[in-house]
């Protein structure tokens, strides 16, 4: 009576250093299931440079290259070039970076690689702040959230950067959002990306119980609510223009259901929640228009 049908083979091992209930650990597990063992991963500074394990240990069954913070896309492009010269074109190159290394510090290298349409898969696992260094605000932190650098009195008052739109604007062949709450959808997208030549960008929603101040067992429930409230919709963009909506909730749930599960939003007043709701509704309407849905 299976609900999700995932590939059996694991390309990751336990004993890794992710916190309890880590969404990023699940994101990697699913992504490597989809890509298989013929994969090289390059990881800049981010939670995963710790999760993998200290030198000389690694929790991945595939080669992993630790690169500098701003160089995920550049190092991936370099690895790709090296493999291509050796004629190893069937090996996937995966740049695996957090939101800090993607939205902020790595965006120049990413934009460059995308503009050149390097044949790589770039995954940003998004836990919406610099979690590894102690929960500092990033440009992926959503409006209203508490972080250690946006304390309750001065909570973040700018919206989350629309990285998907930025990447689509590069007119690369494939951009998609995915979520650890929808593993079958995530795996399908990674498999799809694997078979496309050029730059593929996948934005994976990966809850962080430690930084979001939620219970570790809430990870999947929150991921689902993010989709059901349209805070984090699941969609794909082909060639920079063709929008495909993957999951359209029958009834869009109110954002407060999503917000109230997380301590980082606890300070928000009803009025502020109402504002967030309006913004979510507006963005959802825009997305539906782009996907030609009503």
């Amino acid at each position: 009576m299976k609900i999700f049908n995932l590939p059996e083979k694991e390309n990751m091992r336990p004993g890794h250093l992710a916190c309890q209930g880590c969404g990023a650990a699940l994101a990697m597990r699913y992504t490597l299931k989809a890509l298989g063992e013929k994969t090289i991963v390059t990881i800049p500074a981010c939670c995963w440079s710790v999760i993998d394990g200290p030198f000389p240990y690694s929790s991945l069954k595939v080669p992993l290259f630790h690169c500098a913070f701003e160089t995920a896309a550049a190092s991936a492009a370099g690895i790709r070039a090296g493999l291509d010269i050796k004629g190893l074109e069937d090996i996937n190159v995966l740049a695996w970076a957090g939101d800090g290394g993607t939205f902020d510090i790595g965006i120049q290298a990413l934009s460059g690689a995308a503009e050149r349409n390097e044949n790589i898969i770039y995954v940003c696992y998004d836990n919406e702040a610099y979690m590894n260094t102690g929960i500092q605000r990033s440009s992926a932190t959503p409006y209203g959230a508490w972080t250690t650098t946006t304390p309750v009195k001065h909570y973040k008052n700018r919206p989350k950067k629309d990285i998907v739109a930025i990447m689509a604007a590069h007119r690369i062949p494939y951009v998609a959002t995915a979520s650890v709450g929808y593993p079958d959808d995530l795996i399908r997208k990674v498999e799809k990306a694997k078979n496309i030549k050029g730059t593929k960008f996948i934005h994976i929603y990966a809850p962080c119980p430690t930084g979001w101040k939620c219970k570790p067992d809430d990870t999947i429930k929150i991921s689902r609510l993010a989709v059901e409230t349209a805070v984090f919709p699941l969609y794909e963009i082909e060639n920079g223009y063709k929008y495909i909506l993957n999951i359209k909730p029958e009834v869009k749930k109110p954002v407060t259901e999503y917000l109230k599960m997380q301590g980082r939003f606890r300070h928000l007043t009803e009025k502020e929640i109402e504002m967030i709701q309006k913004e979510v509704d507006f963005q959802w309407k825009r997305l539906l228009e782009k996907c030609n849905q009503n």
């Binding site: 336990p14 004993g15 890794h16 250093l17 394990g53």
Partner: peptide, 10 residues
Amino acid sequence: SLSDTLHNKT
């Protein structure tokens, strides 16, 4: 790194 994390009993 040539070893794995299985020694790390989390």
